[in-house]
Design a protein around this nucleic acid. Sequence first.
DNA 1: ACTATTTCTTAACCTAGTTCAAGATACTTT
DNA 2: AAAGTATCTTGAACTAGGTTAAGAAATAGT
Lengths: 194, 194
Amino acid sequence: MNTSSFITNIKKTVNLNEEEEKYIESVFVPLRVKQGEFVEHSGEITRYFIYVQSGCLMTYFTDRDAFDHVAQFATAGWWTGDLHSITKGVPSIYSTRALADSEVLLLPKNSQEELLNKYPQMERYFRILYQNALVTHLHRIIQGHAAAADERYISFREKYPSLEQYVPLKYIASYLGITPEFLSKIRRRLMENR
Amino acid sequence: MNTSSFITNIKKTVNLNEEEEKYIESVFVPLRVKQGEFVEHSGEITRYFIYVQSGCLMTYFTDRDAFDHVAQFATAGWWTGDLHSITKGVPSIYSTRALADSEVLLLPKNSQEELLNKYPQMERYFRILYQNALVTHLHRIIQGHAAAADERYISFREKYPSLEQYVPLKYIASYLGITPEFLSKIRRRLMENR
DNA sequence: ACTATTTCTTAACCTAGTTCAAGATACTTT
DNA sequence: AAAGTATCTTGAACTAGGTTAAGAAATAGT
């Protein structure tokens, strides 16, 4: 498995010379996961930042009634994992699992720290990554309050059309904060009205 | 108005020498706002990162039915504003207003860029700031899906006890994603059960 | 191809949270 | 202190979305 797609991704944000590329590539741990397999388990301390090369992962929270709540999906070019657990060294409340056979690159916590110390561009890369994620998250919060479920579903489909091929509807429902049954109703209404 | 509280805040995360402190202090624009006054208006391109020295601000989104939805509160030591608008140069969908007489420090977009280029520590400071905010935001999303309104209210009070002095209940309701009337009912139930 | 398991849908009934409208408490301003 | 404005509460009627349970359709395993 080669890591060049990741380097390409970084270079969209910051510049890297040959030596930097080499080093960065060297610290990632490539991993293949089959559909259904876990990359991280809740309850354990997260050790890796997870970058998706291909396939699709989901990160989710399981509540005390054993209901799963999808925090985020991640397809090629996305990062996922539990930032809180890895940075603070506390057990994670999220699990990360493959929704399809996937190739991921694991960046161990220590290696990330090294990268940040060694290459200021990497500090910038992550700053911008987090900055963009923050905008998206806040938008999701507000839309959760301001828009009805059907609107949220419609904009989800517009925003992430590629996810439909990987993600079962029940997880999309979970991501949107509704039940699969209600999503079914919404989908039917949308079909009937056109 | 002095800016030293801000420097103290940065120094909790990264180190600064005398020269750096001086320069950083020099690029901030201090501003006093009275209760009810706006710091940023939706529809305009955000020009400043907003740091709160004292008092309390709220940033909110107004939907097409003219309902306000509180995105976040900010008291002393917090940043607020619309990251999307300022970084992408697009009109903001959020407004920021003072809930009490407040002292804020405005960091113009250009000055932030300069700081980031000049001092790698500042890149790190913002990376960590965003990283922490991301954790909080994701938690808020998940709690919005996994917890009922009364639980969300209780954990809000535990997490931000200091906000109760500044923030009218109707805005707390908005932040939690419920109506003021329903928050009233929740509060009553909580009173009766003890 | 056959079976088992998971996912998706439907329908009847239920509830957390909303809407509307009115009254009660605060908080300002003069 | 009075009057005006904004906030908070209450209650009755309502609705978006949840629950339960069962069947249909798709996937996966053998």
